[in-house]
Design a binder for these strands. Structure first.
Length: 277
DNA sequence: CCAGTATCCTGCAGGC
DNA sequence: TGCCTGCAGGATACTG
């Protein structure tokens, strides 16, 4: 059983669910206790900035969500690897590890839940966005049409394994361990091949596969989303057909060779020794 | 500047 | 059955 972590497609699907379920609602009250997360959570400060204000359309940059409020400023949320944003009835019991609760004007609550606390939620005043260290360092969006032209030369200039490079958010924003493995398998490139030793042609192919797999996953999420009468945040967690991730020891879907399992930069990496070179 | 590794956290799987 | 260990991974601080 593979647990799907929030990478770009999952975050985008959450964004779309919130666009449907959150825009136009007012925040009547913010609740939560201070807790150490990837960045410290300060519910009182967040409350001072957003209580009494109305949600505008949410945005996404890489894996970061920007929940904008009318009149300026955003609640920036990163889901880490176990984070969820849930829209639920106030009557329902809250899940364990609910760190932040926003009471909404329709009687529901927006809940930020994150057992492993690799995620965070922080307030950004207007103008903070430009200088925020997480956002300002981000590389190109994978769905940007300029991807095929911009990124290959940058990858070609690096020594690291291609897999490490496409996981580097400063180069390309939004890919995690799952879609990295899937993209490389689709492109027929060994995950441990160094950027320097990969032709521009093959790197361009990789960029196409990155875009395709992410777009397919977003489309799947969109399908999931339409199935929910009331978007509840869980809509962001779906399963696409994963060809290699979590399938070490199983036959390659293309050639039948046994999928190999290795570690690159400390991360589990599955690949086909026959198809990827 | 660049590459590689340690670190944070909880839940769960596997071994004995 | 129950305890222990290790792994899962995103971003970033740190080391060489």
């Amino acid at each position: 059983m593979v647990t799907v972590m929030p990478e770009l497609p999952e975050v985008e699907t959450v964004r779309r669910a919130l666009e449907i379920g959150l825009v136009g609602l007012d925040v009547s009250r913010v609740r939560g206790r201070p807790v150490m997360m990837r960045r410290p959570l300060d519910p009182s400060f967040i409350a001072s900035r957003i209580e009494g204000r109305r949600f505008a359309a949410p945005r996404r940059r890489g894996k970061f969500l920007l929940l904008d409020l009318d009149g300026g400023g955003s609640l920036m949320v990163h889901l880490g690897m176990s984070g969820k944003l849930l829209l639920g009835d106030a009557e329902e019991p809250r899940p364990n590890h609910t760190h932040l609760v926003l009471d909404l004007s329709d009687g529901r609550e927006l809940r930020f839940v994150d057992p492993r606390r690799f995620g965070f939620a922080v307030w950004l005043d207007p103008g903070d966005e430009r200088s925020d260290p997480s956002l300002s360092a981000l590389g190109i969006e994978p769905l940007d049409p300029a991807l095929e032209d911009c990124l290959p030369p940058l990858l070609k200039a690096r020594r690291s394994p291609v897999k490490s490079l496409i996981l580097d958010q400063r180069l390309i924003a939004g890919i995690g361990n799952i879609y990295a493995a899937e993209s490389l398998w689709r492109a027929g490139i060994r995950p441990d091949r160094h950027g320097r030793r990969t032709s521009i042609t093959r790197l361009r192919r990789l960029m196409r596969e990155v875009r395709t797999v992410l777009q397919e996953a977003i489309d799947q999420g969109g399908t999931t989303l339409r199935d929910y009468a009331t978007p509840d945040g869980n809509a962001g967690y779906f399963k696409v057909k994963l060809n290699v991730y979590g399938r070490e020891g199983e036959p390659c879907p293309t050639c039948g060779a046994v999928l190999k399992d290795t570690r690159i930069a400390g991360r589990a990496t599955v690949w086909c020794p026959q198809c990827q070179h």
